[in-house]
Amino acid sequence: MWAFILKRLLVALGVALTISVLSFSLLQISGDLAIAIGGPEATAEQVEQIRQEFGLDRPLIQQFGAWLWNAAQFDFGRSYYYQSSVMELVAERLPVTLTLGFLSLAIAICVSIPLGVAAALKRGSWIDRVAMAIAVTGQAMPNFWFGLTLIIVFAVNLQWFPAAGSESWKGYVLPAIALGYYATPAMMRLTRSGMLEVLQSDYIRTARAKGLSTTSVVFKHALRNAVIPVVALAAVELGFMLGGSVVIETVFSLRGLGHLAWSAISRNDYPVVQAVVLIIALFYIVLTLLADILNAALDPRLRTR
């Protein structure tokens, strides 16, 4: 098991390094940085001065080394737009995004797995049809529209939750539902099809032949095997929710990473964009690593590979 984790860790490190190269190149291909920093009114001398000040006249490999060294210490430089370091901006918004992401994932898991199991057990019944209806609407509905609907119903009409802001936990409820609903269909379908397949398998017949209770057959023997692909999917979904919740963060005026990235892109604030891209990529790497480890814990066959 430890050898497996170590191997995965090395792979993850390799991926992280590759992504840092891409992230660094992003800044380089965006044009002459000195001109970008100087702004449209800067004279040629000023641009030259900026170029020297920021070390932009040095060879690329040196610039990359310096940037990577700083990035490893969580120093991504200063924002072009705000008068603060990039890391401060990120640190301020990260908790919002993390809270939203994990809450959404929790909602998605709590809905999709029980529903998927129930749909598989009672295939063709009303609960299966309800589950399918939830899946289809969840996949077909744009999540900004669903977010707005939630605001109209629960914030404007019923006034149960605030329409915007992250001051209290209440502010997270509606966006987490909106985002969680978005992640539910795929996980639910995968649980359902996984359960259907596993329930047909020989080892489930063996479990029944042993006289085990339905609970033991379904939860101990079937679900554990059916849920393995769902774990990998959940990791990807969480990565997506951490990085791609721009729309929901905007709808609910949550000041998270997605929101920061979106505004930084529109302002050509490249150091911020670069940092956000790198951080989100690192999230993906960590989550994939965690999913691999969790899968290996669930499926002993993976450990020996």
Partner: peptide, 25 residues
Amino acid sequence: RSGLRGSRMAMIFQEPMTALNPAYT
């Protein structure tokens, strides 16, 4: 009946390769 299965009447199947649950010892 499930009280009898595995207890007083047991079964051995044709395919030993797939008859055991891969996830448990």
